[in-house]
């Protein structure tokens, strides 16, 4: 009982509380600090890069050949490769992810859900290097039977496999959003004579739309940052193209490729990694912020 404690004991208790609070604060702050440090390093090294290469050349140049004797530093081919593979992944994940989410949330019996959910979670635990070889050694040969002149390295195959990789993530987050829709809306719709499918598509999905959109945006942000699959299966030549059948490098693929090489520290070519990394960071940051904003908005509805 508080009243039974002496002043001294109470003071000691308060001190201990403070100490624990402080330790927790430090722990929480350290992760923020590490993130900030990474951003600081990225910005610092990028500044070095931009002091030799004009930022407009970097942003609008259409050729990326930093390792050649006549280097050019246009990020567009890498950015294009990233966006194109992401786009292919999105086209692939959108229907499958949505159908899976609708099925799991509105149709699956609890027993079926209990079987499928762990499988999905298992899939999202597969190392991406496995997906990379799956793309190179299975998906590409498979596609080549439909598309005769498809090169061994191509964006299409990598994009589809990225799509496969993010299905569990997108489907599971979308399902959470749909299950959060209160049952009285479903009852209202069913009582109007709607079928379960009509209820799912016309009431539940629209009611959960910001959460579902957030799931897709977070999925996109993972696709943008995906590295192994594209590094393995999409080829590593920077190539500004809109045709997913061609090989192309992405920002991430370039970064691994160069980081694995033996570039001298502090050289301009070395600094390109940081500039490219900064672009990648900003890109995923934008998607994540959009995703979190949407999720937040969708919570406010009910």
């Amino acid at each position: 009982m508080a009243s039974a404690l002496t002043v001294w004991e109470r003071r000691r208790q308060r001190l201990r509380e403070r100490a624990i609070e402080f330790v927790l604060l430090v722990a929480a702050a350290s992760s923020v600090f590490v993130t900030l440090a990474i951003v600081a390093v990225l910005i610092y090294e990028s500044l070095g890069f931009f002091s030799s290469v004009p930022i407009t050349d970097f942003l609008f140049g259409t050729v990326w050949t930093p390792l050649f004797s006549n280097p050019q530093y246009g990020i567009l081919p890498l950015l294009g490769g990233t966006l194109l593979s992401t786009f292919v992944a999105l086209l692939f994940v959108a229907p499958i992810g949505l159908v899976t989410a609708v099925y799991l949330s509105e149709f699956a019996s609890p027993r079926v859900r209990e079987i499928i959910k762990p499988i999905l979670e298992l899939l999202s635990g597969v190392p991406t290097v496995v997906y990379g070889f799956f793309a190179l050694l299975f998906m590409t040969p498979l596609l080549q039977t439909f598309i005769p002149n498809l090169p061994g390295f191509n964006i299409l195959s990598a994009g589809i496999v990225i799509g496969i990789m993010i299905i569990p993530y997108v489907a599971s987050l979308s399902e959470d959003a749909m299950r959060a829709v209160p049952n009285n809306l479903r009852d209202g719709s069913l009582a109007m004579g709607a079928t379960r499918l009509e209820t799912a598509v016309r009431v539940v999905l629209p009611a959960a739309i910001s959460g579902v959109a957030a799931a897709f945006i977070l999925g996109i942000s993972r696709a943008v940052g995906e590295t192994m699959i594209v590094a393995i299966a999409a080829g590593q030549q920077p190539n500004l193209t809109l045709d997913p059948r061609e090989p192309a490098a992405t920002i991430t693929a370039y970064i691994v490729q160069v980081a694995l090489g033996d570039l001298p520290h502090g050289s301009l070519a070395y600094q390109t990694i940081f500039a490219a990394g900064l672009v990648l960071l900003l890109l995923t940051l934008v998607f994540n912020i959009a995703g979190f904003w949407l999720r937040h908005k969708f919570r406010e509805v009910y």
Binding site: N184, D187, G188, S189, A191, M192, G193, A194, A207
Partner: peptide, 21 residues
Amino acid sequence: DVVQLRARVGMVFQKPNPFPK
């Protein structure tokens, strides 16, 4: 056909449940 039945027999619930539309 319960769809037809429910078109003939409407229902109003305890807690107002307008769709978010």
